[in-house]
Design a protein around this nucleic acid. Sequence first.
DNA 1: CGAGTGCTTGATGGCAATCAAACACCGTGG
DNA 2: CCACGGTGTTTGATTGCCATCAAGCACTCG
Lengths: 243, 243
Amino acid sequence: MSDIPMQRLTEFAGLNANDLALFRSLFGPEKRISRRRDIRTQGDPVQEIFLLSSGWAVSCFDLRGGERQIVKLHTPGDVLGAPSLAMETAAETLVGMTDVTIRSMPLSAIGRIFKEAPSLAASLFISAQQERIFLMERLASLGRMPAIKRFAVLLLHVHDRLVHIGRECGVVDWPFTQADLADILGLTSVHVNRIMRSLDQQGLIKRRGSTVILSDLAALRRLSELPERQWIHGPDWLAQIAL
Amino acid sequence: MSDIPMQRLTEFAGLNANDLALFRSLFGPEKRISRRRDIRTQGDPVQEIFLLSSGWAVSCFDLRGGERQIVKLHTPGDVLGAPSLAMETAAETLVGMTDVTIRSMPLSAIGRIFKEAPSLAASLFISAQQERIFLMERLASLGRMPAIKRFAVLLLHVHDRLVHIGRECGVVDWPFTQADLADILGLTSVHVNRIMRSLDQQGLIKRRGSTVILSDLAALRRLSELPERQWIHGPDWLAQIAL
DNA sequence: CGAGTGCTTGATGGCAATCAAACACCGTGG
DNA sequence: CCACGGTGTTTGATTGCCATCAAGCACTCG
């Protein structure tokens, strides 16, 4: 059984040993869920939040017409299902894109965190704000960019997140089919295919199976129209909580 | 000088008198900003968050090509600029769409809230999760719906928020031009115009200046493909923090 | 009254959807 | 071993939603 990944939680500030120990203690045992299975389906009662221990997952909205929009990609260390904390029943469906292992935390534990570990609570709060930025970027890309730029924005976003958790620079090895990418980008799989070939032929990316190699990072960033983000690290106001 | 509106903060649970008093005490004096002026521009250092006391505002992303995507509409009582708490410099531009009055809260005050008023902190946290749901809905609408449905989704979203803060049911009186709506919906102003006339002619809405009357709420909800949301109210885990 | 802003309408064009079909790969079972 | 179905990728032909371009109109304001 692997240890609990905490990259996302300690991204903005170090946490003391007590906080980390508390956080670990609040999660249940590991549970395996296989590829393409729902972790939680939209409409289910909200009784817990999840930590993704290993594998890839997504959050998505299923629409009445049978279409779906993937609204967030998750890598190990991510907390899943938190947005629905504001609701009686889950707004999003959580799906494993590979076999995944998750742990769950009951709602009562969230109360404990706010009561007993304010620094931890603040870290979760900032993480939620970061997620809002990610969503706003995706929104800007769907609303105001043609397909090629959307793809570049997505690829760079995932790339930068992967590098952040220690993966190799210049490579994105994700488990998505072109149909999945279409559900992320608001396109059809046919068009995603054309976009990818086009980027390939222009020399911006190369493809090896489901792996994408970013052969020209500078050109991709120029395409994307969005700046690289500078996240805070150990701001005064956060450090001061621990005192 | 008007009192501080707290609808958004008390939406999910009542707060005790101490928490409310603390919250009030953390905001600076009212400041007026006139229509179409930036409250904070993207790239500015993040030194505070804002409370919108009166008027309408938006958060938007300005892209390199000069286009913009409006990512969030704000009504009185909303906290503005919180997503950029995760960043060194602001990711979004905050703009008043009418003359607005705002109050600001320094970052150090956020630290105090987490340290001294865990129930208040938890309310802010849930509110951030709610904002993520809103963004995910917008994303689903831009990614997977044609223009008419996007408009219906937007109109209903704003309508339901306005009703929530006590405005008349069946009416949306907003200060947006068709060009603004285009920046919200990821369309052009020309197309927004055609969409609105079309809905008007079909009898789903009526227009009186900038006011939209929702003449057929049921039909609009059928169009929108998204369910009405049931937000939590006074869940156990939140109440338990105050004990 | 002229300039500016916002709304409306028509004509044209393009990006992406839709429809359709072939191809590659893979695990399964006859 | 090969047939087979299933999944995913690729490519072409056609369609359509929405963008773009252009111009006229209504209203406000200095």
